[in-house]
């Protein structure tokens, strides 16, 4: 198993919104390939597509508040050889335009890229309507679709460039709020390749998005109780890295998954689908438990919904009890 040491100061990490990484990545992709185009749906600055618009005004198309039209116009552009990026809040992108994504984009395997903003409960004050908690499930069940949930802004930038370089529909999820930066420029990123960012022997915490940081903090806390936790950054939910997951399960014999998403159908479900069929071990999941979000400041919400390092520690101890009882 590849072990990638992350040089993050867990006590006081630098904090950057992952949407900034997407915005920079889109500009990078635009510079790399003149066929990259972007479609805006009125929230262009909020999802950081205004940076691309300023750099390449002739390659930016405003479609107004019309998510379904936005998706299918992108499909038409893809059919003419363009590499269109459709960016919107995750709820409206993956939800409002789901049939368009399914039947027009994925069925024909068109080269349309989706940037899902405002992923997770940490959207905060806007409340449940704007907190995307279901997109991973909605997207990963579609044939041909790739789903990536970067851990931070740097990884979001790399993921955005990577999906531009790789043919086919792909969804990259990013958040609104400032979150700890855990990777750096030198950290490898490859679609479909999870990596171990902290080695351990007692339990493996498999996380994606901002929960990678929480998992690293949880591992540090567990170490104080004499528990050796491994942390896996499982940034690509689809295609999922079976080999790394099975290897982690074989080594630790206990797994915790952690994500800022509904438990049903999300990254954790994807991980447990692999393990249940290949190497079943005691497992528990951290995520949103079949409920809608609500308004509040991000930190309060993450605590209220059990999406913190403390909660991961608690769940890891439970799974260890299950392991011992075997």
């Amino acid at each position: 198993m590849e072990i990638v040491e992350l040089k993050v100061n867990l006590a006081s990490p630098e904090r950057v919104p992952s949407r900034d990484g997407y915005g920079h990545g889109l500009v990078d992709a635009g510079k790399m390939d003149e066929n990259v185009v972007a479609l805006g749906a009125d929230i262009t600055a909020s999802v950081r597509v205004d940076w691309f618009q300023k750099e390449f005004p002739e390659r930016f198309f405003s479609v107004g508040i019309a998510e379904q039209d936005q998706m299918c116009i992108a499909a038409g552009l893809a059919l003419m050889g363009k590499v269109p990026f459709v960016t919107n809040y995750g709820v409206f992108l993956a939800g409002r335009a789901w049939d368009q994504i399914r039947t027009t984009v994925c069925y024909s395997n068109l080269n349309v890229k989706l940037g899902g903003a405002h992923g997770g409960i940490s959207v905060g004050a806007d409340g449940a309507t704007h907190q995307a908690l279901e997109e991973i499930a909605l997207m990963r069940c579609l044939p041909n679709m790739k789903v990536i949930v970067p851990a931070d802004a740097i990884e979001a930038r790399k993921a955005t460039v990577a999906i531009a370089k790789t043919y086919g529909p792909a969804y990259v999820r990013f958040g609104r709020e400032k979150v700890p930066v855990v990777t750096d420029e030198a950290t490898p990123f490859e679609i479909g390749k999870a990596y171990c960012c902290k080695d351990g022997t007692d339990v493996a915490i498999v996380a994606c998005g901002a929960m990678v940081y929480e998992a690293l903090v949880a591992a540090e806390k567990l170490a104080k109780s004499g528990i050796s936790a491994m942390v896996i950054n499982n940034h690509t939910v689809k295609p999922i890295d079976k080999d790394t997951l099975i290897e982690a399960a074989k080594k630790t014999k206990a797994v915790v998954t952690a994500e800022e998403h509904q438990l049903m159908g999300g990254m954790g479900s994807a991980v447990l689908e692999v393990l249940a069929q290949n190497y079943p071990v005691p497992a528990r999941m951290v995520g949103v438990e079949d409920r809608f979000g609500e308004s509040g400041d991000p930190d309060t919400l993450m605590k209220a919904f059990g999406l913190t390092s403390d909660h991961i520690v608690e769940v890891a101890k439970e799974v260890l009890k299950m392991k011992m009882a075997r």
Binding site: C72, G76, L77, M80
Partner: peptide, 10 residues
Amino acid sequence: SVAVGMALGA
């Protein structure tokens, strides 16, 4: 909508 995208691309 797909046709609009094609026309814009052309």
